[in-house]
């Protein structure tokens, strides 16, 4: 997917998506202490997929001659994480943020391969967001248009 001369708006959207992947990984790391063993598999899967997505996205940018944005040292959760429900809710938020970032990539690129990978990222994060919303006891588990800001 190397593409020298990636349009500026595409670069900005991909960097934002990379930022969402960094944030999601930080969140998965934070919440694990608050979640019982029943969540281990979901946590492992989420971390593995976000790591893969983060690395592929950084490589894509580097191949286009752009320095991938690094992760922040820490992130500020919108609400404090104190228990299982608030932990699940924060993961749902991080996954939702990722859907928004990846849909934005779809709307700011024309490259077919990047579209396919952005669609896969949007879809996988939407599925996980739904699972974590269900875990958090949220009523509206499936938004009609995941990723729509």
């Amino acid at each position: 997917m190397s593409q020298p001369g990636m349009p500026q708006e595409t670069v900005a959207a991909v960097q934002a998506a990379l930022g969402a992947e960094h944030a999601a990984l930080w969140v998965y790391g934070l919440v694990s202490a608050f979640l019982p063993a029943a969540y281990d598999k979901a946590l492992r899967e989420g971390v593995a997929e976000h790591r893969e997505r983060r690395d592929a996205t950084a490589e894509l940018l580097a191949a286009a001659g752009i320095t991938p944005a690094p992760a922040e040292a820490a992130y500020v959760p919108p609400e404090p994480v104190e228990d299982e429900a608030s932990a699940a809710k924060l993961v749902a938020t991080a996954e939702t943020d990722a859907t928004v970032a990846w849909r934005a990539v779809l709307e700011r690129c024309d490259d077919k391969a990047l579209r396919e990978s952005a669609l896969a990222a949007l879809t996988q994060s939407a599925i996980r967001a739904t699972r974590w919303r269900l875990a958090a006891g949220s009523d509206a588990a499936v938004p009609s248009f995941p990723g729509q800001p």
Binding site: T99, W102, R103, A104, L106, E107, R115, A118, L119, L122, T123, S125, A126, I127, A129, T130, A141, V142, P143, S144, F145, P146, G147, Q148
Partner: peptide, 14 residues
């Protein structure tokens, strides 16, 4: 692409 991407993701999530 954004609209249809969201439709795709919603069907998978449902």
């Amino acid at each position: 692409a954004g609209l249809v991407g969201s439709v795709t993701a919603a069907c998978a999530s449902l």
